[in-house]
Amino acid sequence: MTLDFDEGDELRDLRAAVADLAGRYGHRWFLEQARTGGTVQELWAEAGKAGFLGVNLPEEHGGGGGGMVELAVVLEELGAAGCPLLMMVVSPAICGTVIARYGTPEQRDRWIPGIADGTLTMAFAITEPDAGSNSHEITTTARRDGDEWVLSGQKIWISGVDVADAVLVVAKLADAGDSTLPGSGRRTLRPALFVVPTGAPGLSRTQIPMELVSPDNQFQLFLDDVRLPADALVGSPDAGIAQLFAGLNPERVMGAAYSLGTARLALDRAAAYARDRRVWGTPIGAHQGVSHPLAAAQVEVELARLMMLKAAWLIDHGLDAGTAANSAKYAAAEAVVHAVDAAVQTHGGSGLSQENGIGALVTASRFSRIAPVSREMVLNFVAQHDLQLPRSY
Rank of each mutant, 00 (worst) to 15 (best):
E376F: 12
H338F: 05
L228K: 02
R187D: 06
E42C: 04
G177M: 07
L306S: 15
V90N: 12
K172N: 10
V336G: 00
G118F: 06
D320V: 09
L78D: 00
R190A: 15
V337P: 00
V89G: 15
D225R: 12
G79C: 07
G67I: 02
K49G: 12
G281A: 14
P191V: 09
K310F: 03
A360N: 10
Q288N: 13
T2C: 07
L265Y: 08
A328Y: 05
A242C: 11
H317V: 13
T97C: 04
G318F: 10
M377W: 12
S91N: 12
L303R: 13
G79E: 04
N356K: 11
A266T: 05
G160N: 11
A34M: 08
L294C: 06
L75T: 00
V290Q: 00
Q154C: 13
V253H: 02
E106M: 09
V213I: 10
G153K: 00
V55L: 12
P92I: 06
Q207D: 11
D117I: 08
G8K: 08
P293A: 09
P229M: 09
L221C: 04
V344N: 00
T119F: 02
L151F: 04
G202V: 04
A34V: 07
H61N: 11
V69Q: 13
A271E: 13
G66R: 02
D130T: 13
G26C: 10
I99T: 05
F367K: 14
D165N: 13
T282W: 15
A257P: 07
R110W: 05
V170T: 14
Q243S: 14
S135A: 12
L193Y: 03
E302V: 05
A16H: 01
A131V: 06
P372M: 12
M122L: 14
I370Y: 14
G185M: 08
P293V: 07
L265E: 00
D231G: 09
R305V: 01
G64Y: 02
R205V: 14
R28K: 15
P84Q: 03
C95T: 10
A232Q: 05
E76S: 01
G177A: 05
P58T: 05
S236L: 07
P209W: 10
R375S: 15
T2H: 15
P84D: 03
G67M: 05
L314M: 15
D117F: 06
V196F: 01
K329D: 13
A17H: 02
W44R: 14
Q41D: 11
G235P: 00
N356D: 14
I158Y: 01
R35Y: 07
I99P: 02
D225Y: 06
S184I: 10
D238I: 12
M254A: 09
G240L: 06
M308D: 03
A47E: 02
A166F: 00
A17I: 01
S204I: 06
A166N: 00
D268G: 14
L86T: 09
G199T: 07
W313C: 11
L267F: 05
S152Y: 04
A100M: 04
A19S: 11
T127K: 14
G132N: 11
A230N: 11
V18P: 00
I126G: 00
G37W: 10
I208D: 06
Y258I: 03
